[in-house]
């Protein structure tokens, strides 16, 4: 591996990092702009999954070791699985967040 190759890798990892951060920014913009709680969850889960993926990829390329790359891939995989699961729980509770500050208030309003 010549120095040019390493420089290319560095630039690639920086570009991936920047793209990942852009996705995080887009997710946060969506969080602010979208009108209701479930739509905000769309923005958070999906954009942040991709953001995390790109940042992880950037880190894996930056370190350049297969062992570290495997670990980073695992982190990404578990993060995606748990965000898919928690998003289901949050989507279930989303009307609560839309209604008012606390779960019990929502239940009182909906008469359950």
């Amino acid at each position: 591996m010549g120095p040019e190759f390493l420089a290319v890798l560095q630039i690639l990892s920086l570009a991936l990092l920047a793209a990942g951060v852009l996705f995080y920014v887009a997710g946060s913009v969506g969080l602010l702009r979208f009108p209701d709680a479930p739509s905000r969850l769309h923005a958070l889960t999906k954009a942040d999954n991709v953001g995390l993926g790109l940042v992880s990829l950037a880190a894996a390329i930056y370190w350049g070791e297969p062992a570290i790359a495997a670990k980073i891939a695992l982190v990404w995989l578990f993060a995606i699985i748990s965000s898919g699961m928690t998003a289901q729980l949050l989507a279930r509770a989303a009307p609560v967040a839309d209604g008012s500050g606390s779960p019990a208030e929502y239940e009182r309003e909906s008469g359950t």
């Binding site: 887009a26 979208f34 009108p35 739509s39 999954n49 991709v50």
Partner: peptide
């Protein structure tokens, strides 16, 4: 799944950053 997850992120990022906010949410 990862490939389509990437499309999912791209889609929602595009909608969030579009000044017209092209969404019509519903169940």
């Amino acid at each position: 799944l990862l490939a389509r997850g990437f499309l999912g992120g791209l889609d929602v990022a595009r909608r969030a950053l579009d000044p017209r906010l092209p969404i019509r949410p519903g169940w």
